[in-house]
């Protein structure tokens, strides 16, 4: 299981054993908790989210789900100067694909021919 290279040491077994050890500690702490705690209707819900608690009987939960496009919206918007031209280069047009191929060919041939 050991991976020993000249500058790298890694043993997945140690990692797994450590994870198990930490898991046992977590379980011990958990088991020391108040056993008289009773589950409530809103257990686990954020109480200061600003939204009313979600009713379990509520039928339509779909609108509140975070969809693919919503992920990292802020990150992508903040870096619009990077993402916008990048997406813009991926036009889907074959002519553009050929242009990039020929440009790369030209650059690499010139670099290797000159040096």
């Amino acid at each position: 299981m050991n991976l020993v290279h000249s500058i790298t040491y890694w043993n997945p077994l140690i990692m797994i054993l450590m994870a198990c050890f930490i898991g046992v500690i977590i379980y011990i702490i958990y088991s020391l908790g108040n056993s008289s705690y009773k589950e409530t209707k809103y257990r686990g819900e954020p109480f200061l989210s600003g939204n009313p608690p979600i009713d379990e009987d509520e039928k339509d939960k779909e609108p509140i789900n975070i969809r693919g496009d919503n992920f990292y919206w802020g990150f992508i918007t903040a870096l619009k100067f990077y993402f916008k031209p990048l997406i813009g280069r991926h036009t889907g047009r074959l002519n553009d694909y050929i242009f990039w191929f020929m440009l790369t060919m030209l650059v690499v041939v010139v670099v290797l021919a000159l040096i």
Binding site: F101, T104, M105, V108, V109, V111, L112, A113
Partner: peptide
Amino acid sequence: DRIIMAILIV
């Protein structure tokens, strides 16, 4: 040789 190599790399 270098041109051949450049083409093959690309």
